[in-house]
Computed example of a mutant assay.
Amino acid sequence: MAPKKKNIKLKSLSHGRPPTAKKPQSISSKATRTLIRTHHTLQKRRAKALAEGDETGAAAIAREIELQGGLETYQRASLTGQRNERGGDSSKILMDWLSPALSNMRELSTNGLSLKMLEVGALSTGNACSRSRLFGMERIDLNSQSEGIKQQDFMERPLPRDETETFDIISLSLVLNYVPDAVGKGEMLRRTLKFLKPATSMQNPELAEFFPSLFLVLPAPCVNNSRYMDEARLESIMRSLEYELVKKKISNKLLYHLWRRVAGAGPAKVLFKKEEIRTGKDRNNFAIVLK
């Protein structure tokens, strides 16, 4: 008899993340890509099983993930992917974009008033943003790999008590694509607003051009080859959340966006369903749903 299904809601990112396992040996670029793809596929299958109440199936998939090396292996593969020969540190793109405002940022830093940055899914304390010493950095990840990174689920992070606990910029670099379901992706984007400073907080015109903002990095196929997502739809979703596109860069592998929070009466209550906008058997299923 098939196991009885229960209606289980995925309450946090950790529901979609498997346990860690042993450290792997150094692996090639091709093996890295294969490992990451396989890990994402298994993680989505596990999340689906959990959502359907199939605890037996979810446990079996979790064991399969653990045999593949678990979350720690995935993170090490992601760190490998940050090497220069494999795409590099994504925050270098952000620092290049911010070059017109660097003198103002240095002045703030000199006066002990550095802009505050929350890096979600941080894998390293030595990326370009950290090395710049222009940000007051706070780094979090579900499975911290080093000192300086707090082990925390962004979806369970306590809400700011006041504006002093908010940030000028949030980085979601290769994080949103890890969220196991389309509704969860929408909830994560909406939740970033609770941690960003108000749109009118930046008085300096050169800084106000870039802050407060969200630095979003996705695998390019999530937008360019999805049944349910393209650039126009992503921009519509972000506009409904009162984000305005400031910068964009597309490579063969990654899509980089800098979205600035803009002033308004509040995020529009617009419903974005999971609707097919492209056909084709080779498309992926990346989607963002806003309820």
Rank of each mutant, 00 (worst) to 15 (best):
S146G: 15
H40W: 09
S114Q: 06
E52T: 14
R106M: 04
P219D: 05
G264F: 04
S146Q: 15
D54R: 13
M137T: 04
Q145T: 08
A101P: 07
D162K: 09
T32E: 09
L207G: 15
T279F: 08
E163Y: 15
A265F: 08
S201R: 12
F215P: 05
L98W: 06
T125P: 02
Q82M: 10
T32I: 12
I140P: 00
T56M: 15
Q203S: 12
Y178G: 01
L172C: 07
T166Q: 12
K22W: 11
G136M: 12
Y228I: 07
I170P: 01
A122I: 09
R63I: 11
T110W: 14
G57N: 13
E66L: 05
L172P: 01
V223H: 01
S240G: 02
D89G: 02
R17C: 02
G186S: 02
M202W: 12
P212I: 09
A2G: 15
S12W: 00
D168K: 14
A21M: 10
A287R: 03
G69A: 13
Y228R: 09
P221T: 08
T80K: 14
R86E: 08
L174H: 10
L94N: 05
S146E: 14
G16L: 01
V120K: 01
E163P: 09
M105D: 03
T164I: 14
R46Y: 05
N143K: 04
G280H: 03
L94Y: 05
V223K: 01
R33D: 10
I140A: 01
M105Y: 04
S103E: 15
K249M: 11
I36F: 11
A199M: 02
S91R: 14
R161E: 12
A128W: 03
M1T: 05
S130F: 08
N225A: 10
E107A: 08
D282V: 14
T20Q: 11
E209R: 10
Y228G: 03
L216K: 03
L196P: 00
G112C: 01
T73K: 13
V175L: 03
H15F: 07
R45I: 09
Y243F: 00
P18L: 05
T200W: 13
A21I: 09
D181N: 02
Y74N: 09
E66H: 08
K273W: 07
S251Q: 12
I288N: 00
Q145A: 04
W97H: 07
L35P: 02
L115R: 04
Q75N: 11
E231F: 10
E72T: 13
V217S: 05
M117G: 09
L113A: 07
G136R: 10
A59K: 06
N177C: 12
Y178S: 04
Y74D: 11
A62T: 15
P205S: 06
K11A: 04
R76L: 13
K150G: 02
A60M: 12
A59E: 14
E66D: 10
L255T: 13
K291M: 01
A208F: 11
S91T: 14
R278K: 13
M229Y: 00
R260S: 00
K185A: 00
I170F: 03
